[in-house]
């Protein structure tokens, strides 16, 4: 298992090289000049040229990329063109806020999505199932920011129950300001978790072992949780982990609508000002968190399904077996 995890972590390296190279190239060939962004339109020719030289923009693309990676390997993510502040500090300062928001959204999505999915599956084609299906489709198709705006209008402007902007200072205020963005982000994810739970449970419901379980005379609740849900978990874990990975990279629109000081908003600002180092930093964070969540899902599979666990194990065994064969 540990070996498997290590292997997967090592696989992160080529993924990151690919992602950074791709984004770096796109930013480099994009038709804008970061120098004019930094200095403004009124800058003199010499100032522009000096700045270009200082930023290394006159070097060829590959050289610039290698330099960037070299700095990266030394822990230097560069300085923002716009604010001249170190990107790594800026992102790390915002990341906890994004983690908080992502976690709250996921909790809402999972706590509501899984039970609703089970109920819809168990009462397939009932009124509840139909309402959940339509509701789920609406929530998935609805743009996040639009739902966010509606919530702000209702709960912040009309009812004045909750703040519409920013993140409070003390725990109660933070909690209050978390509610609306978490619901905004959680709704769509809840709907997809619900749909996935429904179809996965529907599949396991028809398995023979459910009959065996019922024939033991155990309660329907136990049959549902211990036998149906436990077997239906794999796709639910997959989708939850992917969504969580997505959220951890920062949700640009929702964080912007609620002025949430997270990495999503930082990235959107960076894109707006064409701030290459800041964009690169955000992209790296995004792909790392996404990959790690993927890995986490794969590890969780092993805890849920002993067959997968034994696969991870047997991969190791096979190797050691081969090794013995070669030695003898």
């Amino acid at each position: 298992m540990a070996k498997y995890v290590l292997k997967r972590l090592l696989l992160l390296i080529p993924v990151l090289i690919g992602v950074t190279f791709f984004v770096f190239t796109i930013l480099a060939v994009a038709p804008y000049d970061p120098v004019t962004v930094i200095l403004g339109d009124g800058a003199t020719e010499e100032a522009i040229e000096g700045m270009r030289e200082e930023l290394g923009l006159n070097d060829p693309l590959l050289v610039r990329y290698v330099n960037y990676i070299w700095d990266l390997l030394h822990g230097d993510f560069g300085k923002s063109y716009k604010t001249r502040l170190p990107v790594a500090d800026q992102i790390l300062r915002r990341f906890p806020n994004t983690i908080l928001l992502a976690t709250c959204s996921m909790v809402i999505a999972i706590v509501l999505g899984i039970p609703l999915g089970i109920l819809s599956a168990k009462k397939q084609y009932s009124l509840l199932d139909n309402v959940a299906t339509v509701g789920g489709l609406v929530s998935v198709s609805m743009p996040n920011f639009w739902l966010g705006l509606l919530l702000v209008i209702l709960f912040a402007l009309k009812l004045r129950w909750l703040p519409s902007q920013g993140m409070g200072e003390d725990p109660v205020a933070i909690l209050k300001s978390l509610i609306l963005p978490s619901i905004t982000l959680g709704t769509g994810i809840m709907a997809s978790i619900m749909r996935m739970t429904r179809s996965s449970v529907l599949e396991t419901m028809r398995q023979d072992y459910i009959g065996t379980a019922r024939a033991k005379g155990i309660s329907e609740g136990r049959v549902t949780v211990r036998h149906m849900l436990k077997n239906a978990l794999i796709p639910i874990i997959t989708i939850s982990a992917l969504q969580f990975g997505n959220l951890l990279g920062g949700s640009m629109l929702t964080e912007t609508v609620f002025s949430w000081p997270g990495v999503g908003r930082y990235m959107l600002d960076a894109i707006k000002t064409k701030d290459t180092p800041a964009i690169m930093g955000s992209v790296i964070l995004m792909s790392v968190s996404f990959s790690i969540m993927n890995l986490l899902a794969d590890i969780l599979y092993a805890f849920v399904d002993p067959r997968i666990k034994s696969q991870y194990r047997s991969a190791r065994r096979k190797k050691s077996f081969k090794g013995e064969g070669a030695a003898s």
């Binding site: 023979d208 009959g211 065996t212 036998h227 436990k230 399904d305 002993p306």
Partner: peptide, 10 residues
């Protein structure tokens, strides 16, 4: 069918 009548994850 014994192949399918046991819960695979318990």
């Amino acid at each position: 069918d014994p192949m399918t009548s046991l819960n695979p994850v318990t």
